[in-house]
Structure formats: C-alpha cells, structure tokens
Computed example of a mutant assay.
Amino acid sequence: MKIFKIGGSVITDKAIYRKAKMETIERIAGVLSGMGEMVIVHGGGSFGHIKAREFGFPGRLDEGNRMGVAIVHRDMVDLNSLVSSALIKRGVPAVPFSIIEHYRDGAVDYSILPSLLRAGLTPVLFGDTYVSGDYCGIYSGDRIMRDLAEMLRPEEAVFMTDVDGIFESDPKRDSRARLIPRFSGEGALLGGSGDVTGGMRAKVKEALEIKRFSGRVVIMNGNFPERLLQNGAFLGTVIE
C-alpha cells in the first residue's frame, strides 16, 4: 500500500485561475498506473488557492462569502475529475472522495476507504473546503496525507512537489541551493511560500509526522514522475 500526494503546483499553473497542466497530469497518471494498491491525494493550485484567498478562506462564513464555498469546492471537483479521468484512461479504477461531504464533528470520516480498497478501487482525495458552524476551513492535501498515513500505515508515502526535494535554501531563488538527500528534521526549512496551506514548511512538518506511520517517506519532483521507476539512485529527499 502506497499513498501519493500530487502538489497543486505540479498539475496547475498557480498564477492562472483554473489552468491545468494536462500533459503533466497524463504523465503522472501513466506512472501511477503501475503502482498497485494505492490512495492518491492532490492539491488545488490555481483551482483552489486563488478563489480561497479572494473569499478570505479560511475564516468566518457569512452572507458575503458563502458563495465562495461553492465556487472553491466546484473548482476542486473539476480538477479532481481531470486527475481521475486521466487515471481511468490508464486502467486505474479511480474513485473521487470529497472532504466537504465527509467532514463532521470536527474530523473527516474516512471509514469508507478500507471498503473501497478491498473492492480494488483507488480513492482519489483532494484538498477542499469544509464547513463547521459559521467557519469555513481549508483541509489541505498534506493534512489528508497525515490522516491517511495514521489510518492505513502505508509502506511508502510520496510527496510530488515542483522542486526536487528539500533544499538548504529556496532553489527558486538561489541557483546554488543544495538538495538535502536525507532529512531528519534538523537544519533550515524553506520559508513559507505564501500559499493558503503554508508551502514547503507545512509539507515538511507533515512529512516528519507521517514518518511515524509510514515505512518510507519521500519528497520528489512531480514534473519527473518517471523517477519513481528508476532502479538506481533516487533523486529527491528521504525523510528519516
């Protein structure tokens, strides 16, 4: 059993509202089609973050931003459909799982997942809005990964980001940034990227937590999904 998180920055252009990177989605789906039993999670990118910011989520839900819940959720469902359709095209029996429909009493009810897996299906979850009283929250894909790891105890948890792994400095700003091939929680984390879910810093924090429940945790570049198939040295960061 493996769990995969596909970052929103990998499968969308985060600067353009609802701009999906279909070629990348297709390539990732092709590689994942040979991974056996798995659960897949994907982020929102420009399908989630742009409108979430516009409507002030997470935050108080009121008359002025109620429509935002519907819009953000709709957009995420549309992105999930693109991902699921690409998987189905390659023979993966992908079944969407929506957080907003399963959030109750302060937690997500994942109880249906083991039944789906026993049936040979592949659940595909996604970062989503959720409503609790007069509050609208954002349940991130990274948080979903932690929930799944604790519940399913996977042999491997893989985070696909838009960089090769964890670096000593931000590789998007520092061309000399060095990749950290093995990371145990010591050393500098990347600064927050300013997105709704906290960027790489939040991802690393979740990855360290997930390591408690998973046999192997890695962060890799989702733009090169074929690296999952390499038999040689792995290019990415292994969480220890």
Rank of each mutant, 00 (worst) to 15 (best):
T122N: 08
G91W: 11
M151K: 01
L121W: 00
A107R: 12
A119D: 12
L113V: 15
G120V: 06
L152T: 00
S98V: 14
R104E: 11
L117F: 13
S140K: 06
R104N: 14
G127I: 05
Y130L: 09
V95M: 14
L152C: 05
I138P: 02
G127Q: 00
L148V: 03
V158M: 06
L121T: 08
S84L: 08
E156G: 03
S98L: 15
Y130S: 07
I144E: 03
D147S: 04
S98F: 14
E156A: 09
E155F: 02
D134P: 03
T122G: 08
V83H: 08
G127E: 08
T129Y: 02
Y110I: 04
R143H: 12
Y130T: 03
S84Y: 06
I99V: 15
L125A: 06
R153E: 09
R118Y: 13
F97S: 05
V124A: 03
V124L: 08
G127V: 09
V108M: 11
D128E: 10
A86M: 12
F126Q: 06
P96I: 12
D128G: 02
R104F: 07
M151I: 05
F97T: 01
H102N: 13
P96K: 12
A119Q: 13
R153D: 01
F97I: 05
I144W: 04
L116R: 07
I144N: 03
P93F: 07
G106E: 13
I144Q: 04
Y110V: 02
S111E: 14
G127Y: 08
S111H: 10
G106N: 12
L87S: 08
D109S: 09
R146G: 02
E156N: 00
A149I: 00
V131Y: 01
S140G: 10
I88H: 01
C136Y: 03
D128C: 04
A107E: 13
E156I: 01
P93C: 11
I100S: 11
P154T: 09
V158H: 00
L116T: 11
V92T: 13
F126L: 05
G106A: 12
E150G: 11
